Amino acid sequence: MKATVALWKEPGGPASLEPVEIGALAAREVLVRMSGGGICRTDLAAAAGIVPLPVPFVLGHEGAGVVEAVGAAVDTVEVGDEVILSFDSCGDCVQCAANHPAFCELFPALNYSGTRLDGSTTLTQDDLPVHGSWLGQSSFGTYAVAGVRNTVKVPTRPAGLPLEFLGPLGCGVLAGAGTVFNVLRPQPGQGIAVFGLGGVGLSAVMAATVAGCHPIIGIDPHPRRRPLAQEVGATHTIDPGGVDDIDRAIAHIAGAGVDFAVDTVGSGAVVRHALMSLRMPGVCATLGLQAMKNDITIDQGHLQMGRTLTGGLEGDADPHTLIPHLIDLWRQGRFPFDQLITRFPFPRIEDALEAVRSGKAVKPVLVFD
């Protein structure tokens, strides 16, 4: 069958809407008619060539839609089910067995190669391969092929929550919230600082609010994001360009420092400030992607003082567990992730990508007819 996708023919180039052919499903694959697809900064990194992919390629990894067809070995979803697409994992390795699918031993091959494990592609154009399977889905298209492991059935969808809004739960929102819930695991009353208030950072803010953190400090130079952070739970915000010393500004709020910090930027300067914001002991999780190789320098004394610097990938979450939990928190009025979303019609994908680059929109979502 045919689909219309956003196709990149070279890194750094524009995406063009073009028809492709979807081949026969493998036994454990699912065909999804897309309703919405969130745009993540990782998509921008791949589009720019920072994450290398063979051309031509299709991006998108925060998809939501309706199951159109299933492979012969799929029994967890059926035609007509509403689903959210997340990252893929094998389900069989040591990490998957230990409920850490984000650290699956086959993660790079399943999510970053542009092909199935056997080297075949889910998409073709004029009988030539089109590289999809980006984060197990390539959902910037009217249809997407995903694996059974990264297709999450939507529990009863709350009234007032459109299906197209659910896609960001598959990556950006999952990563920010999962980092707080699964990696940092704060107790009520513990303080947290979040550096960078994009989709991931604001999701961390909302999760910290659910966890009962205090204070919750959001740091971002963008004037539109700080008020939004306070709307979704931040107790304080800081414009790093508006203070002489970020660390002193945080200390003014949190005294000896915060218990936890989340870095969603990934620059050496921000990582160092995040570590310096911590009390002793304290934990900083760094999530921001600057490049595939990104050298940073930190003061060893920060670690000797009991501070910990750890990485994070997809919030160390099982999407089949955390995504339904986040939807339930939304239903309770405790996780208003819909406030982050700006709709864009699919043909305006370049406008949506630019809105991410400029910071005009926190979480653009492409909407399909």
Results as ranks from 00 to 15, higher is better:
101 P>F: 05
210 V>F: 10
235 T>K: 06
86 S>H: 03
60 G>V: 12
280 M>G: 07
303 L>M: 15
60 G>F: 02
292 M>Y: 00
261 A>L: 05
296 I>Y: 08
292 M>F: 08
357 R>F: 12
74 V>H: 10
343 R>I: 03
108 P>F: 05
335 F>Q: 13
88 D>I: 00
19 P>Q: 10
29 E>N: 01
156 T>P: 00
107 F>M: 11
164 E>S: 06
48 A>T: 06
163 L>G: 09
238 I>E: 06
290 Q>T: 12
109 A>V: 00
227 P>N: 10
343 R>W: 09
1 M>C: 10
325 H>R: 15
12 G>I: 03
107 F>A: 14
6 A>D: 10
172 G>L: 06
207 A>S: 01
117 L>H: 10
287 L>P: 01
10 E>S: 15
75 D>R: 14
85 L>W: 04
365 V>W: 07
286 T>I: 02
53 L>F: 14
159 A>D: 15
214 H>R: 12
291 A>V: 01
86 S>R: 01
22 I>F: 08
20 V>M: 02
24 A>G: 11
112 Y>F: 15
216 I>R: 02
362 V>K: 06
116 R>V: 08
70 V>Y: 04
14 P>F: 04
213 C>F: 05
207 A>F: 00
107 F>Y: 15
82 E>A: 12
180 V>F: 05
216 I>V: 15
10 E>L: 10
135 L>C: 09
106 L>F: 12
32 V>I: 15
303 L>R: 10
177 A>K: 04
351 D>I: 08
248 R>K: 13
272 R>A: 13
246 I>H: 03
232 V>Y: 10
252 H>S: 14
121 T>V: 07
52 P>V: 08
19 P>T: 01
123 L>D: 00
205 V>I: 14
323 I>E: 12
285 A>K: 07
92 D>H: 14
120 S>M: 08
132 G>I: 01
235 T>M: 07
335 F>T: 02
150 N>Y: 01
256 A>E: 12
74 V>I: 11
63 G>P: 09
335 F>I: 08
347 P>L: 09
332 Q>V: 03
219 I>C: 06
119 G>C: 09
118 D>R: 13
150 N>R: 04
261 A>E: 05
141 G>K: 05
51 V>I: 15
319 P>C: 10
295 D>T: 12
241 G>W: 05
244 D>L: 10
304 Q>H: 14
294 N>W: 10
297 T>R: 14
215 P>L: 02
300 Q>K: 09
286 T>P: 01
277 S>I: 03
126 D>F: 04
13 G>M: 13
82 E>M: 13
268 G>E: 04
26 A>V: 03
276 M>C: 00
41 R>P: 00
369 D>Y: 05
302 H>A: 12
101 P>W: 05
136 G>R: 11
145 V>Y: 07
39 I>D: 03
49 G>S: 08
33 R>T: 11
7 L>W: 13
54 P>N: 07
246 I>M: 00
321 T>Q: 14
108 P>G: 14
123 L>W: 00
242 G>Q: 09
204 A>D: 02
91 G>N: 00
292 M>T: 14
309 L>V: 06
216 I>Q: 07
149 R>V: 02
125 Q>H: 07
184 L>T: 03
328 D>V: 08
137 Q>D: 09
276 M>T: 00
294 N>F: 05
27 A>D: 15
270 V>W: 00
136 G>L: 11
360 K>E: 15
294 N>K: 09
90 C>D: 04
11 P>G: 05
188 P>T: 07
291 A>S: 14
340 L>D: 08
21 E>V: 06
